[in-house]
Amino acid sequence: MKSFAYERASDPKAAAAIASRAHARFIAGGTNLLDLMKIQVETPETLVDITRLPLKEIVEAGGGLKIGALVTNSDLAADERVRRDYEVLSRALLAGASGQLRNKATTGGNFLQRTRCNYFYETNARCNKREPGSGCDAMNGFNRILAILGTSDKCIASHPSDMAVAMRALDAEVETLKSDGSTRRLTLPELYRLPGDTPERDTNLEAGELITAVRLPKPLGGTQIYRKVRDRASYAFALVSVAAVIGVENGRMETVRLAFGGIGTMPWRDARVEEALTGEAPSAALFAKAADILLAEAKGHGENDFKIPLMRRVLPAVLREATGVSA
């Protein structure tokens, strides 16, 4: 690990101001940042410890919830309101990492965790995300865990978060504080960037921009499911995952929210899939059509080709479970 200056922020404004300096990083749970610092993929010169900031509450706001950026993944998953009204979020959190890690990991840090691409971690390899312009060894290499949607010829890294997939299905928005003291709210498609020609930038956050909270809109009801397919039953990242909120009324799917993990370069959602299902009577043929729409532009890179047929089965399976319709 490269050494760094350590600063304990006294309030959010001070934190944002210090972190706007060159080569500074916030540290929250540290479970991703310290991991990457140990192998010198991250080499911040200043660490701004935000763990003592008063951003640890979950409060009711705007008919939904306002979740402080420092609420731990454990506390968020166990919150009674989240379990009752946003079950898909509790489920996604509980499917991620381990008990020990969830006790440390924070809501803000979880959103901003970096890809698990093997070459991103291997400093001897070429990786455009780690070292812009160096190339991408994953493209023709070990890319089993990487993305099939939203990729570019520069980077095919998948976004690893489970929590963010549920958040995307729930239309969560992040609230931020910039170093000049101004605040803004970003939807997740506004927060995250596709790799394009600049895979080194995962998000549209500016230097020193602090996530202060996450807003969940009012509860959607319906049946909520988080299905995660992985190489072992627990403590492994998703190969593919589906976050679903499905409400059926009078035999028709009136509420349809679907987001996907493991397949996209960001937590994935496709309005065309939801449109195809909304207002329709559930049927196996329709579920297959939804999967076709989702995967129409999917592109495998060899080792990860299997994700296409896998998702073609997992999405209908989730829809069958949510609606009880199998024929």
């Binding site: 540290i27 310290l34 991991d35 410890d49 763990t51 006790n103 440390k104």
Partner: peptide, 27 residues
């Protein structure tokens, strides 16, 4: 492992279990 992957370093901080290899003493 020193990377949060095995749990051999587990300690309790304020009663909660965490991986002590992935957290700084100064914090």
């Amino acid at each position: 492992c020193d990377h949060g992957q095995c749990g051999a370093c587990t300690v309790l901080i304020n009663g909660r279990r965490v991986n002590s290899c992935l957290t700084l003493a100064v914090m």
